[in-house]
Simulated scan of single mutants.
Amino acid sequence: MKNFALIGAAGYIAPRHMKAIKDTKNNLLAAYDKGDSVGVIDSYFPNADFFVEFERFDRHIEKLKYETDTFLDFVSICSPNYLHDAHIRFALRSGADAICEKPLVLNPWNVDKLIRVEEKTGKRIYNILQLRVHPSIIALRKKVAEGKKDKKFEVDLTYLTSRGHWYHTSWKGDHSKSGGIATNIGVHFYDMLSWIFGDVQENVVHIHEKDRAAGYLEFENARVRWFLSINSDYLPNEIKEKGQTTFRSITIDGEELEFSGGFTDLHTMVYKDILEGNGYGLEAARTAIEIVHSIRNTEPVGLKGDYHPFANGGTLEKVAKRIN
C-alpha cells in the first residue's frame, strides 16, 4: 500500500483521483485546499487529514516523516494550472513522486526546469494523459500506425462544454492562471492528436476569445480543424433538446470516432500504469504544452484558410462533410 497526499481536494477533478487511489488499494494520508467544500473525501478516505493552509499541510507532511517515520510515496496534484509547477516541486522535495493533472505546466521551458529537479531529487513526475488509455483512442493509433505512412487524415475536433458566469470569475477565466480556454479544456485533445498523428507541422489560430477558440493543426498524418467553446449557444439543437450541456466529436475522413463512453475509470487506469512502473512523464507532456503555448501566444488570423465550420456558425452537417 502506497501513501498519497492530494493538493486541490475541492476541485472538480479531485474525486477521480481519490477514486483512483482507493481503487488501486492505496491510502490517502492528507489533503489540502484553500476551500473547505471537501465532504467528498468521506466517500473515499474519511480518516485523511485535511488542511486549508498550505503551511500547515507542509508541516504535517514533515511531522509524519520525522516523528512517525511515515513517508509519502506520491502527491496527486489537482490545483489550478498556474500552481502545478510549484506543487510538483513540493512533492519532489518531500521525497514523493508527483502525479499531476493537465496541463502539467503552462510553458515549455518549465518542462526543462523540472527535468533538472527530477535529476536532483531522483523522483519522478507523471502527467494524467487519460485519453492515451482509452480503448477507442488506442485502436485509432494502431490503425494510423499500420496504415500508409504518407496518408493525411482529414480531422475535425469539436468540443463544447457549457460553463456559467462563475467560470470567468474563477481562476479558469484568468488567462495568466489557466492559460486560456484552449489550454484549460483543450490540452488533453492536443496531446491525443499528437500521440496518434505525429509531430506538429503547422499551428494556425483562427479565433481565441474568452469563451471560444478555433484553429488548424497539421501533423505528420493529419490535417485538423478544431473548435472549442464553453458557451452553450454553440451546442447543436439536437444536443440542447436532450438537455445535455456537453458535446464532443471527432470525425476522421468524415466518419465519427466513437469515444463518448469509458471515461469514468480512465484515471484509475492511469494510476495503475504508474504504480506498475509505467506512466507518462515530462517528455510525453511536452508536445501538448508546446501546442497550447503557441496557441496562447499567436495572433489569431480570423476566418481565413481551412477553418472549422463552427467558427462561422456552421452545423454538424458541415462538420461531417469536409469543406475545403
Rank of each mutant, 00 (worst) to 15 (best):
R141L: 05
H134Y: 12
A86T: 05
G122I: 13
A98H: 10
D97K: 03
R93H: 12
L92I: 04
V117F: 11
V144Q: 08
G122E: 14
C100Y: 09
V133R: 07
D97E: 07
R141D: 08
V133T: 04
R93E: 09
A145E: 15
G122Q: 10
A96S: 06
L129A: 04
I128G: 00
I137G: 00
R116V: 08
D85A: 09
R141Q: 11
D97V: 02
L106A: 04
K143R: 14
A145C: 13
H134S: 06
A145N: 13
H134L: 10
R141H: 12
P103H: 13
I99T: 02
P108Y: 10
V111I: 14
I99D: 02
V144S: 05
I88P: 01
K102L: 08
I128A: 01
N127Q: 12
S94P: 01
E146Y: 12
S94R: 06
I99R: 06
K123D: 03
L92M: 14
R93F: 10
S136I: 06
K149D: 15
I99S: 01
K120L: 13
K102V: 00
R116Y: 10
H84M: 13
K143F: 14
L140S: 00
G95D: 04
I125E: 00
E101S: 06
K143D: 14
A91I: 03
L131A: 07
V111Y: 07
D85T: 07
C100P: 00
Q130L: 09
K151D: 13
I99E: 03
S94F: 13
A139W: 12
I99L: 12
K113E: 10
W109M: 14
N127A: 15
R116G: 09
R141I: 01
L129Y: 07
A98F: 11
S94Q: 06
V105A: 00
A86N: 15
D150N: 14
R132G: 00
D97Q: 06
R89M: 10
K152L: 14
K142C: 09
P103Q: 11
R124F: 14
K148M: 13
P108F: 15
V117H: 07
V144R: 06
N127K: 08
V105W: 06
I88W: 07
N110T: 08
L104C: 02
N107T: 11
I125H: 02
P135C: 08
K142I: 05
K142Y: 13
D97I: 04
K152Y: 08
W109F: 10
L92S: 03
L131V: 04
L92W: 08
F90L: 03
W109N: 11
L92H: 04
D150I: 05
R93K: 11
L140E: 08
K102N: 03
P103C: 12
